[in-house]
Every structure is written in structure tokens, then in C-alpha cells.
Amino acid sequence: MEAIERFVDVGIKLQVREWNQEGKKRPFLLIHGLSSNARTWDGVARVLATVGHPVTAVNQRGHGQSDKPDHGYDFTTVTADLHRLIGVLGWKKPILAGQSWGGNVLLAFGAQYPGVASHLIFVDGGFLELHRRGSWEEIAEQLRPPAFNNVQRDQLKSQISTHHSDWSDEGVEATMHNFETLPDGTIRPWLTLEQHMKILRALYDQHPAALYSQVREPVLICPADDGSEWAQRKRGAVAAASTALPRAEVRWFEQTAHDIHVHRPKQLAEAMLDFID
């Protein structure tokens, strides 16, 4: 099942990918992470659409070919974008799934717009608390994205394929859509460095623990355990989130990369479907 791409005007133009819009089951809205893109959800979306759900994956502001205003990268504005998108799509009580920063966006969405969604799904996100990991200056230095000056697209794709040898070709290619390919074959991120750092600062300033109790919807938390030290440290954050959220379930993905939706799309989609059923 192939996706259809279009732009939706929500005050700015957002690029979306859509599957099975005539489906009769409850719709899904899929939200990517920081400096990522809607295509990374393709594998998950096909599974959901095949069983009858309308599915839309959106490139948030600044990402992909969506509009890139100089402002509006705070949680209040990006959640308002999603709220207006749901209205334009004409959806009632959709299921929202967000990965990494996208999970934290949905946490803010649930607190800001209670009752709009039917379920929220946090995919290795929603519980990220950067302020607990050091000062802003330390975090800005640690998580500042690399420069991609004069990097050839084929070179980076080969590196990603080597580093993630068990990812599908489709998943690697979807990840490459985080970047614009220039006429000389080099790449640059669709999200500018300035915009990236604005989002990172908003994420640093967010305090998820203060928001959990405000979320009405059932929440599925899908954390990844790739065997790293960070995976072990985040178990405490996941436990705190699942305890503080009024209705939450946790489904760990062992031996899985942070990009669960790229690494194990079928398994993630099945977990999502089990949860809403």
C-alpha cells in the first residue's frame, strides 16, 4: 500500500503522508522525532492501514518540506499545529503516536488538549527529561547535531547501513529523507541548526513529571533497550512515567535501536494495535 503525499494548511503548510484515508477504523496520526521525518513511519503505517485504519504521518514545522518559519519551535506552538491538523483532517478521537521528541510533543499535547485523542503512544520518548542530565550548556554541547558539510548522500547512506546492519533497505532510505539532497550529491538537514537548537532548548526546559497527571488518555510507553548505558539509566524515567500517568502500560523493545519504528516496524505496529484493542 503506497502513501499519498500532500500539504495541509494549518496556518503554516505541513507536508503529510497518508494511507487508507477511506478506512473505517479509528485513525492514527504519527509524529516523528527531532531532525527526523514522516517517512520513518512508513513500515508501521502500512501495517496499520492494511487492517483498516486511516493513517497520516506528518513532517512537523521545520522538517522535510513543511514550512520553516523562524519561530514557533516551542511545545505550545507545535502542539497547536497538531491540534489544527486534526481539525482540518476532520478526525474525532484519533490515536496519536510520537517517537523520541515526538513522544514529548504528545505528552504536552495530552496535557494541553485533554480528550482530543483516544490513546497516546510514546515510542522511546515522552519521558525524556534533559534537564536531569546536566546544565543547558552541557546538553547543548553534547547533543548539538554534527555538521554535514560536503558529505555525499551515498557515503552517509552506506555508513547508516553499516551501523544498522539489521535495518531494512526501506528503513535506511527513509532515514535518508532527514536530509535534502543537493545538485552535487551532497546533503544537508531539512531542519536548520538554529531551529534544531530551539527545539532542543524547549525539550530541555520541559518538565514531564509536572505533566503526567494532566493526561487523561491511556498511554502506551514503548522504550528501546539497545544494551547501552543510557538504556539502563532511562528505566527509572520510564518507571516514574508509568507510575505518574493515570493510565499507562509499558512494552519494552529489547535489543532495539532508539528508532524502534524504523528498526522493528511490524512488531511496533502490532504492539500499538494490541494496546488500542
Rank of each mutant, 00 (worst) to 15 (best):
G171F: 04
G62V: 01
R201H: 13
Y113F: 12
G33S: 11
Q255K: 15
W19Q: 01
D277G: 05
K25P: 09
D226N: 13
L85V: 03
F179W: 06
A57R: 04
A111T: 03
G72E: 09
P145G: 12
D259E: 14
W230D: 00
A224W: 12
T256Y: 01
T256N: 03
A80N: 07
L182W: 15
E5Y: 07
E229H: 11
N59D: 15
H196T: 00
T162S: 12
R247P: 05
F122N: 01
F127P: 09
N37D: 04
A45V: 13
R201S: 08
K92P: 05
I95A: 04
V215C: 07
T76E: 15
S161F: 04
L200S: 01
F148I: 04
A224T: 04
V151H: 02
I12Q: 01
P218W: 09
L156I: 09
D81E: 11
H163V: 01
F28G: 13
G43M: 03
M176G: 06
L14A: 12
R46T: 12
E229L: 15
V105E: 14
S228I: 09
E129M: 02
E129A: 12
D74Y: 06
V10K: 03
V58P: 06
R201V: 09
R84Y: 05
I4S: 08
P27T: 08
I95K: 06
